[in-house]
């Protein structure tokens, strides 16, 4: 099972790389979206591995809150882009 988690960590490095090297703000938002989803999924996997449901509940909340924060931020950045024109 450790192998699965290490594979998940390596896939986490791909959006980290794209988020750092691309200058477009929406590329960074995409990297943020995938990473917030992936970290929440990793916490879920770990909670199942350890049979600890407290961590599992936290994973669900992190998943929903991460997406909510992302949508708020996306709306603010979209408004900024519209003002530029």
């Amino acid at each position: 099972m450790n192998g699965i988690l290490i594979a998940m960590i390596i896939t986490l490095l791909i959006p980290l790389y794209t988020g750092f090297y691309h200058d477009e703000i929406w590329e960074k938002m995409l990297a943020f979206a995938t990473i917030s989803c992936k970290t929440a999924m990793m916490i879920l996997v770990i909670s199942v591995l350890r049979d600890d449901w407290m961590i599992g509940v936290v994973a669900i909340i992190v998943l929903s809150v991460g997406n909510a924060g992302l949508m708020l931020l996306a709306h603010l950045i979209k408004r900024l882009d519209e003002e530029k024109i």
Partner: peptide, 25 residues
């Protein structure tokens, strides 16, 4: 700011892995 959000997600992951579920939340 976007990278700060990304850092927050990874910090939550580290906290949860080390057993501090409340800090992660």
């Amino acid at each position: 700011l976007v990278i700060r959000g990304l850092l927050g997600a990874i910090a939550a992951l580290v906290d949860a892995v080390l057993g501090a579920a409340d800090v992660a939340l």
